[in-house]
Design a protein around this nucleic acid. Structure first.
Lengths: 126, 126
DNA sequence: CGATATACTTACAAAAATGTATGTACTTCC
DNA sequence: GGAAGTACATACATTTTTGTAAGTATATCG
């Protein structure tokens, strides 16, 4: 019997996901976490709670639109928690959920490694 | 004195990078490693040496074009080593460099975590 | 002999990501 | 009173990414 892609999809219903199969939801989650701004948002939030504008100031280059979009994505995946203090002018802050902290841990490790080795990398890059 | 972006760029020349500043080369490297196919290529190569076609079969959904592009990117960053056996029909294989293995370690951890927790994630996703 | 496999590249087209500008309702600082 | 800050949404334009199809030279398989 050859490997059936449908069987793989079933695997992740009861067991563990498989990022190598395109239909597996883990593939989508991976993309959200590793998206251009997703990584940075997670890394910063791993540091603490931030308000929207503060987060934006911290992450160089994000537009409001992208930050909002990224936060919503991560929130709907359950990695980020948004708290609206119901004040006016608006006061909202963002932090990581426990699940978010677990994921962020790996992202932070990756980012940290890159930052620490960037000299070696660029030194010998083609 | 307010934080000068130029000073930040200098920091990474002698010291450590800062992904949060847009001009820092570490930002680009991060994007290569976390690109849609970059993560998967690295994760698979962490497993061993592969020929182009084998890699493509392993990673569900990559087009030849994207795989080639991704591999070239990772090669020029020094994470992947390409070996052409100079035969015809062509025989080329890809593997990780020592630097690549270090980076891949974090990627594999992330991917592993997602695969292992995908049930919990999708269960409570909005 | 025709199909299949190998490792790509290139041109073209479609889709997705991202940026820019504007608006909202209200408050505080100068 | 005017400017700036707060947290976004929305429309529109542009840029970037990604996919598709075709082509290359040769060897092996049936």
């Amino acid at each position: 019997m050859s490997p059936d892609p449908h069987a793989q999809a079933m695997l992740n219903a009861l067991g563990r996901g498989d990022v190598l199969s395109p239909e597996c939801p883990s593939r989508a989650v991976l993309q959200h976490l590793t998206s251009r701004w997703g990584v940075l948002v997670m890394a910063v939030l791993a540091t603490g709670t931030y308000r929207f504008a503060a987060l934006r100031r911290r992450i160089g280059g994000v537009s409001e639109r992208m930050l909002a979009q990224t936060l919503q994505q991560l929130e709907s995946d359950g990695f980020v928690r948004r708290r609206d203090h119901g004040e006016v002018p608006p006061h909202v802050d963002y932090s990581l959920t426990p699940l978010g902290h677990e994921a962020a841990q790996h992202l932070v490790a990756l980012v940290g490694w890159i930052e620490g080795n960037i000299a070696a990398i660029t030194a010998r890059a083609a």
